[in-house]
Amino acid sequence: MLRFLAVLLVWWILTDGEASALAFGVGVAVLVMLVSAVLFPRSGYRLVWYRVPGFLWFFVVQSAVAGLDVARRLLAPSLPIAPGLRALTVHLPEGAPRWLLANVLSLLPGTLSVRLQDNQLLMHCLDTGMPLEAQVRQAERRVAALFGVDTGVAL
């Protein structure tokens, strides 16, 4: 039902809120909902709704910092980067939480998810001198809180 409402909302946005298109949109939304239910079955994880705004805020601020960080390095004549690969163990449960962490990390300062294999995350780092571990753990805590899951370790 939530999925149906979300799809209908997207339809409403795409049609610029046109009221006459809404009846057709309901039919489309039902079909899209059925297709999406087949393609992406319920993951068993639920978002903690009241934590979504906080997570979004964290993400927007951090991704802006990431953009500024890369821009600053690019504009410096000496090009201060020290790229390298880092492997980390992810403490989040399999499925949506891990996937979200990998994607979010790609847009956070200095990190780019290369491969997620079981609980091993391989990242490419723009500057291996940055406190990367701390950043990843912070992002991990945020994702864990968003899904209301326990990572099983004191982070």
Binding site: A64, A66, L74, L79, P83, L107, L112
Partner: peptide
């Protein structure tokens, strides 16, 4: 142009362009 390899260039394209779009 400035970054040396593919992986570092991805950093530039994703992060800086996202800021620009934002």
């Amino acid at each position: 142009f400035r970054f040396p390899d593919t992986l570092t260039r991805i950093h530039a394209l994703t992060k800086v362009d996202n800021l620009g779009l934002g």
